[in-house]
């Protein structure tokens, strides 16, 4: 134990009854991949929309020997990731890390780590709107029926209309996937770049939506197929240049505005991946221009 637990609260904040309730929902979600299981989401000491679903799932699955990593936008140092990591360090006293390889539980918002995950890891997603059909049909009563009947024509029509209007499918994140050949699932607002990482992943993937009171899951090695058409196959976002700091290709990059004269640099969104590569000696074209310790920019 590297940190004291907060007096008056149970391990990982939630009481054991609540954890059991959440675990039952998780087990059901694992049994029916991609199906949204309603659960009695609790009020958490952080705001709805800021990861309360992910936090509840993490609290329900984490044990005292787990090692937790929390990322937001791929980074361990974004404000909300720091806040959630501190929350578990304080309420569960678990070890935390920024290293993807060392973590046993990774809670994430908007990204999947670049380094491949293993069977010994759980990836917990924070989900704002779990219903992939929500923006096509706002009513829960309707969308639940559509899922029951596997009636997903509306989504294909939407993607087709994108192509008719723009020449491309204009969905770049929260790109819909079909899970295990049955349920249409919201990939949470990760860029579609990350969708292929969900497919046949060895890690257990759990999705928690606190405000909407839903949990869904991808058991290890589940088929996850991004929707597309034969003549418009699914494509991931591409970048023209490698990371300016670690020279990595084929990773997701953030655009950093350098000045008001159009200066831009592109750097890894996954900060741990980038730091690991730099430690291994990879050098991007702009590495010399930034502090060697990756410190305050």
């Amino acid at each position: 134990m590297n940190a004291p637990m907060t007096a008056g609260y149970n391990f990982a904040y939630l009481d054991e009854q609540t954890k059991r309730m959440i675990r039952r929902a998780i087990l059901k979600a694992i049994a029916i991949p991609g199906y949204q299981v309603p659960f009695a989401s609790r009020e958490m000491p952080m705001p709805y929309g800021w990861g309360t679903g992910g936090v509840q799932v993490t609290a329900a699955v984490i044990g005292e020997h787990d090692v937790l990593k929390v990322i937001d936008q791929g980074s361990d140092d974004t404000t909300n990731a720091v806040s959630i990591r501190k929350f578990f360090a304080r309420t569960a006293g678990v070890a935390t890390t920024t290293s993807t390889a060392d973590a046993t539980v990774i809670q994430t918002r908007h990204r999947i780590p670049e380094a491949p995950l293993t069977e010994d890891q759980i990836l917990v997603y924070q989900v704002p709107i779990p219903e992939p059909l929500r923006f096509l049909e706002p009513r829960e009563t309707e969308t639940r029926t559509m899922h029951a009947l596997e009636e997903y024509g509306l989504m294909h029509v939407k993607l087709y209309e994108d192509i008719a209007r723009h020449g491309h499918i204009a969905t770049t994140y929260a790109y819909p996937v079909k899970v295990n050949g049955r349920y249409l699932m919201d990939a949470s607002p990760t860029p579609k770049f990350d969708n292929p990482k969900m497919h046949l992943s060895p890690a257990l993937q759990l999705f928690g939506a606190g405000r909407e009171k839903r949990i869904y899951a991808l058991p290890p090695y589940t088929q996850v197929v991004s929707l597309d058409f034969e003549d418009h196959p699914f494509e991931v976002n591409r970048f023209d240049k490698p990371c300016a700091l670690c020279a990595a290709h084929g990773v997701y990059l953030d655009e950093v505005v350098l000045d008001d004269r159009g200066g831009r640099m592109f750097v890894c969104s996954d900060t741990d991946f980038c730091e690991t590569r730099r430690a291994e000696g990879h050098r991007g074209e702009m590495l010399a221009d930034t502090p060697a310790d990756g410190g305050a920019a």
């Binding site: 709805y48 908007h110 990760t190 860029p191 655009e255």
Partner: peptide
Amino acid sequence: TGFVEHLKLPHYVDFQA
């Protein structure tokens, strides 16, 4: 208020896409 105000959290990977 949580969901409205969560818009001030970083969204830059989605915005990048």
